[in-house]
């Protein structure tokens, strides 16, 4: 079974810097990690391989430094890592990102299951997974919290999809793309053997030309959404502490206002 995991490198801190020229985020200089949600996808891929055999390939689109994310994935137990990297990809929104990754996966060839995280900690859109599925024209199931069963020969899969009020059991054919949520497993830590392997690991790099990307669909040019303004939300900063000599006094003031605004009876 060929399993592809799409992973994103994200800043390990919530501090943010913005590139004045393009109004996109500056990634360099900040410690980078694998998007925490993608760790569950890597773990699930390794478990599938342990059960059914095959290969786990991680793919990431990003600057050259994103190779580090692939290294960590290898250290966890992934077999291969592809870095889709080209200056032409800079400034991609989710439409361009999902197109680029889909083209990268196409070049990779055979796959049965593609896994992504639920969403990235920085962009937070959760749009790249369904986007890749649509570009590849394969079925997609979001918010998977459990893979119940894979029928290797019949090429079908049964999973549980988390909804707001419970979960759905769904069945679909392979190949398929699943986005996974953190309930699905507990990611393992890097093994000693994995770390050794990661040391000598060199990612295979795909450029825009390698994946035969249409220049109209990649990077800033291929991105219909335009980030016009990025700002840090203003917190009032002032504190509205309730005055009062005793706890009872403070509480009765608050409860009175709540009654006034009909929040409590």
């Amino acid at each position: 079974m060929n399993i592809v995991v799409s992973i994103k490198q994200v800043p390990g801190t919530t501090k943010v810097a913005i590139n004045p020229a393009t109004n996109t985020l500056i990634r360099a200089g900040v410690e980078a990690i694998i998007n925490p949600f993608d760790m569950y996808a890597i773990e699930e891929a390794i478990r599938l391989r342990e059960k059914f055999g095959g290969k786990v390939t991680c793919i990431t689109m990003g600057p050259p430094q994103a190779e580090e994310a692939l290294k960590s994935a290898i250290a966890m137990g992934a077999d291969e890592g592809i870095l889709v990297s080209d200056r032409a990809f800079a400034g991609s929104d989710t439409l361009a990102t999902s197109y680029t990754l889909a083209m990268g996966i196409k070049k990779l060839g055979q796959f049965d299951i593609i896994l992504t995280g639920k969403q990235a900690m920085d962009g937070d859109t959760a749009q790249v997974g369904p986007g890749i599925a649509q570009w590849l024209d394969i079925p997609f199931i979001a918010w998977v919290k459990k893979i119940e069963d894979v029928k290797k020969d019949a090429k079908t899969i049964r999973v549980e999809r988390m909804m707001d009020d419970g979960y759905e059991v769904l069945e679909g054919p392979l190949p398929i793309l699943l986005s996974v949520v953190k309930e699905i497993n507990e990611p393992r830590t890097e093994s000693l053997r994995g770390k050794m392997k990661a040391k000598s690991f060199k990612a295979t790099v795909y450029s825009a030309k390698d994946i035969e990307a249409d220049p109209d669909f990649i990077g800033l040019r291929g991105s219909p959404t335009i980030v016009n303004r990025v700002f840090v939300p203003v917190r009032s900063g002032k504190k509205e502490l309730v005055e009062g000599a005793t706890v009872e006094e403070k509480v009765s003031k608050v409860v009175a206002s709540l009654r006034e605004s009909k929040l409590v009876n």
């Binding site: 929104d93 989710t94 439409l95 999902s98 937070d124 859109t125 959760a126 749009q127 997974g129 369904p130 986007g131 599925a133 649509q134 570009w135 997609f140 979001a142 918010w143 988390m162 909804m163 707001d164 991105s223 219909p224 959404t225 335009i226």
Partner: peptide, 22 residues
């Protein structure tokens, strides 16, 4: 919602237009 965030990104890809999340 769980449903909206699941299928609307696919619609945006079919229509090749932008989608702003959340």
């Amino acid at each position: 919602t769980a449903i909206g965030r699941s299928f609307i990104p696919k619609v945006a890809v079919i229509l090749e237009t932008g989608l702003t999340a959340d």
